[in-house]
């Protein structure tokens, strides 16, 4: 029966149009040994990739939103060349997982200005990662409001403030200082 654990998301995947992973994160409670249902999937990258390939075979070009796959609930959405998936535990309330998934999807929609596609995700990978981090924390759904998530995702810093100007000033200052000292010496010497 439904467990009361907050750890309800087992993995978040972003797969491309051929089933290769663009992003994959398998969650595991950080300090607990009791939760080993997914042990092989968490540790073994090869198994993870096989799992993703099998899953891809099931969901690619089948727009059904939700299915049960190998004892997991999988929610997914297929875009042009990318599929977003959320893998949840089999006992979890489907609508709760749906909430987490929608938050993930819609926040990506908000932060990626020109829509969700593979190139956009790769170009703004840091922002995508931040959005995911703000949505799911180690398998706990952290936030379900896309705007809140998007508001917490920072854009990459713009170019550094004019540090080199300071540097120039310093050099010039040093040069000026040296010049004045030299002049002083020369005058004294003269």
């Amino acid at each position: 029966m439904s467990s009361l654990s907050l750890y309800c998301v087992e993995a978040l995947l972003i797969l491309d149009g051929t089933g290769d992973r663009v992003y994959a994160k398998y969650y595991q409670p950080p300090h607990s040994n009791s939760y080993v249902q997914n042990a092989s999937l968490i540790k073994n990258v090869k198994k993870q990739k096989e799992f993703e390939k099998r899953l891809f075979g099931k969901i690619h070009k089948h727009d059904t939103e939700i299915l049960i796959f190998e004892d997991h609930i999988v929610l997914y959405k297929e875009y042009m060349d990318i599929i977003l998936c959320l893998v949840g535990s089999i006992d979890e309330n489907e609508v709760i997982l749906q909430q987490g998934f929608t938050a993930f999807r819609d926040s990506l929609d908000l932060i990626l200005d020109s829509g969700i596609d593979k190139k956009n995700i790769q170009d703004h990978f840091d922002m995508v990662l931040l959005a995911i981090d703000e949505t799911i924390d180690n398998g706990i759904i952290l936030e379900t409001d896309p705007a809140t998530i998007a508001s917490r995702v920072t854009k990459p810093p713009t170019n550094e403030p004019q540090l080199h100007l300071d540097l120039d000033k310093g050099l010039m200052g040093a040069w000026g200082f040296a010049k004045s000292k030299l002049q002083e010496r020369l005058q004294q010497g003269l």
Binding site: L4, S5, L6, I141, E143, D145, A147, T148, A150, S151
Partner: peptide, 23 residues
């Protein structure tokens, strides 16, 4: 102090986390 382009709207999800911990 809303800084970015988005207006966060609290879903009160803190209640969920607190209840999970309390349990």
């Amino acid at each position: 102090d809303v800084t970015g382009d988005y207006y966060p709207n609290s879903t009160f999800i803190t209640q969920y986390h607190a209840l999970g911990l309390l349990y």
